[in-house]
């Protein structure tokens, strides 16, 4: 019984650490184009890092036909894009301030981060 309880409590700690405390690795973008695959509930890559002032072309290729994936929204940038299935759809972004620009589907099940650093 003790072991089960210890495992349970460890799981709670692990959930907190993995989903909230551990920062996922970002893809540092040196070129100006990133292709993002939209499939299986995730954007791949989902964490992208660019420099302030860097204009970047994000090309979304949606493979998931579920309607959840049909839009990608950059709320902070006031941009949204319809993603047809199996057709690369591009959007150019050039954030004016540093910070974390989240992009997501309408339901926030697909979530990605565009981090802009100095």
């Amino acid at each position: 019984m003790l072991i089960v309880n210890l495992i349970g409590l460890s799981l709670v700690v692990l959930i907190i650490w993995w989903f909230w405390l551990k920062k996922p690795q970002s893809l540092k973008v040196s070129s100006n184009t990133v292709e993002i695959i939209v499939d299986n509930g995730v954007y791949s890559p989902s964490n992208i890092e660019i420099k302030l002032g860097q204009a970047v072309k994000l090309i979304f290729l949606r493979k998931d036909p579920s309607p959840c994936a049909e839009k990608v929204i950059f709320e902070k940038l006031g941009l949204s894009l319809d993603l047809p299935v199996n057709k690369p759809t591009e959007i150019r972004v050039k954030p004016e301030e540093t910070g974390d620009y989240v992009f997501n589907c309408q339901m926030k099940m697909y979530v990605g981060h565009l981090k802009v650093n100095n």
Binding site: F19, P24, N40, V42, S44, S46, Y110, V111
Partner: peptide, 11 residues
């Protein structure tokens, strides 16, 4: 796939 990128969803 979501778990690998520190995300969790309905799946």
């Amino acid at each position: 796939k979501s778990f690998r990128v520190h995300n969790a969803n309905m799946d």
